[in-house]
Amino acid sequence: MVEVTRKLVELLDLAPIGDDHFQGQSEDLGFPNVFGGQVLGQAMMAASRTVEGRLPHSMHAYFLRPGNHRLPIDYEVQRVRDGGSFTVRRVIARQQGKEILFGSVSFQVAEDGFEHQLDMPAAPDPDSLKSEQDWAELLVPHVPEELRETLTRNRPIEIRPVNPVNPLKPEKLPPRKQSWLRAQGTLTDDPVLHRCLLTYASDFSFLATALNPHGVTFMNRKLQAASLDHAIWFHRDFRMDDWLLYDKDSPSGSGGRGFNRGNFFTRDGVLVASTAQEALIRLRS
């Protein structure tokens, strides 16, 4: 495991601070607030710490307030139900006593059943693509100096976008995005860790799918954008240290909100997880 990935794994490794209460540290990714994927991944880890013998199969969460990346986050887990096949946990994330996220995580025993899935869409091989970090290096001479370190930082999740958008010269495009992603280095075999890491990574470039049709990027100073909610479903086992295709679309934008959907496929076409998110997207007057 490379050092930058080890730090992310440690970020998800919450400290117990009481019965069904945990605390996680925050990281600064150069965003104004805590990265939403971090809070989602830590919340799923907190819930998983109160369940044995079952893996999370879905999570539904609402973002209530922006998080401060300079402060730790406290997670309270509430035991809603322990059934014969399913277990449900409610999770509340707080900073300085104020709720920044609440959600629910459902767990299931392993069992067999009907099998079907969508076909994997066409996509170029990840080995033929540049990483986001490679593209960022090309932008460095054209962005303010205070942004350069953020753009070129070493990242635990390597992302290779298909048809990347130039944030300095945006154009109107169909509401669809694709990217390959994986954790750098080799991870342990803990399936909970792999699911928490995918939850963390599922928030990267998701919101921007709804911006494609409008020719707007995060470099636009008038843009006000924030995730409102986030859901993820796990269908089959996978490894985060192997390439996964993240295929995203945005069926609708209205009322200052953009709706996004996503599917994760392995290189051999197996659908392993799906996501959905609604986000605030509007231009300040």
Rank of each mutant, 00 (worst) to 15 (best):
S106P: 11
P124F: 00
M45C: 14
G36S: 07
Q23A: 06
D112Y: 07
L29T: 10
G103R: 09
R49N: 13
R70A: 15
E171D: 07
V9D: 09
Q117Y: 15
L12W: 13
V88P: 04
S254I: 03
R81D: 01
G67A: 06
R176F: 13
G97K: 09
K130S: 08
R94F: 06
T275D: 10
G67I: 03
R160E: 00
Q224P: 02
L173N: 12
R65F: 11
L197T: 01
Q117K: 12
L151Q: 13
L193E: 04
S205M: 06
L211N: 11
L168P: 11
P156G: 06
Q277A: 08
H21Q: 15
P170N: 06
A93H: 06
W233G: 06
Y246A: 04
T275M: 15
W180S: 00
W135F: 15
Q184K: 15
G256L: 10
K177C: 07
G84Y: 08
G36Y: 12
F265D: 00
S128F: 00
K172A: 15
D134K: 03
N166E: 02
D242S: 11
W135G: 00
S179V: 00
D134L: 03
S179E: 01
A123P: 00
I17Y: 09
G113Q: 14
E171P: 03
L168M: 08
L118E: 15
Q178D: 01
A43T: 02
P164M: 03
Q178M: 05
L147E: 04
P32E: 08
D112R: 14
I232L: 10
S26V: 03
D125A: 00
S106C: 10
T266G: 05
D242P: 00
R79H: 15
G53S: 07
R65I: 02
E76R: 12
W233K: 01
Q42G: 13
S85M: 05
M240S: 09
F264H: 04
M45G: 07
V216R: 13
N260F: 03
V2M: 12
N212H: 11
R261D: 04
S285W: 06
Q95S: 09
S131A: 12
M219K: 06
S274K: 14
S48F: 15
K177Q: 14
L129D: 00
T152H: 05
V39M: 09
S104H: 09
R89N: 07
A201Y: 12
R89G: 06
